[in-house]
């Protein structure tokens, strides 16, 4: 059985996008090790409401690691200190009794804080709108093996498609670069026959939008893939570089 522990949570509080933020420390007692990190914040919010204080605002939705809504920069890591998980899959057993846990919003010029721990990640939607789709209806699910696709390509496309667009890559990157996200979204389509046709135009359009939105330049520090909850590899970035440079040089 997991032990119950007492913790302190140091949370970033910010009234609105323009307001000046600050850290506030709250005490929580007898939190079970099996509590998920978001459940812990729920407990904190119930406690705050009982004390007639404003609850902490944070993004969350599915709470099973597939929607990409939860964010939070916890103790120096996006999605906390555990590997290959989102914040909703992080549990209190990863923390020590009496520990102070620092919780911050994603920090990046392209992801402005909305309130407290919630940031505006619309920039990612705008990148997808720039070309992260196939322009024609490709019909329903084709019969298996009707279109030959190598196992290697299928696996790579599936791995790229596992990106949930949470923004941990941007949050971890010292340059605030969105290259891991963009490259995953370009790769998942470019590797398959339906998406291959528009691959060059897509790479150019999405990179252009990414630059316009104020994301930084990739310097290959690999922080993104080390913090990605889905383990998306920087080999996707190499693929994006390859197709972008190829497209520009063949223009």
């Amino acid at each position: 059985m997991d032990k119950d522990i007492n913790i302190k949570v140091r949370v970033w509080r910010q009234q609105g996008p323009k307001a000046k933020g600050h850290f506030e420390t709250y005490k929580l007692e007898n939190i079970s090790g099996g509590t998920s990190f978001l459940e812990m914040l729920d407990i904190l919010n119930e406690q705050l409401i009982r004390e007639k204080q404003e609850p902490v605002v944070f993004d969350n939705d599915c709470r099973e690691g597939i929607c990409g809504m939860c964010s939070l920069y916890i103790n120096g890591h996006p999605h906390g200190p555990d590997n290959l998980i989102t914040t909703c899959q992080l549990h209190i057993r990863h923390f020590k009794d009496g520990e102070t846990i620092t919780v911050e919003p994603w920090r990046s010029a392209a992801f402005p804080v909305v309130r407290d721990l919630m940031v505006d990640r619309h920039a990612f939607d705008k990148i997808i709108q720039a070309g992260g789709y196939i322009n024609v209806n490709t019909g329903g699910v084709p019969d298996a093996n009707a279109i030959p696709i190598s196992k290697l390509d299928a696996d790579e496309a599936m791995d790229a498609a596992s990106c949930i667009g949470c923004g941990a890559c941007v949050a971890a990157c010292k340059n605030g670069s969105a290259m891991l996200f963009v490259s995953a979204k370009v790769s998942q389509l470019a590797l398959l026959p339906q998406g291959k046709i528009e691959a060059k135009a897509r790479a150019k359009a999405m990179v252009k939008r990414m630059d316009e939105l104020g994301f930084g330049n990739c310097t290959n520090t690999r922080a993104c893939e080390l913090e990605c909850p889905k383990g998306v590899s920087i080999s996707n970035i190499a693929r994006l570089n390859r197709s972008f440079l190829g497209a520009k040089l063949s223009d």
Partner: peptide, 18 residues
């Protein structure tokens, strides 16, 4: 890259093992 990162840093630092 510095301006893309934004003016507000992380108080808990960056512990990614790069």
């Amino acid at each position: 890259n510095k301006s893309a990162r934004g003016s507000q840093g992380y108080s808990s630092g960056n512990k990614t093992k790069t």
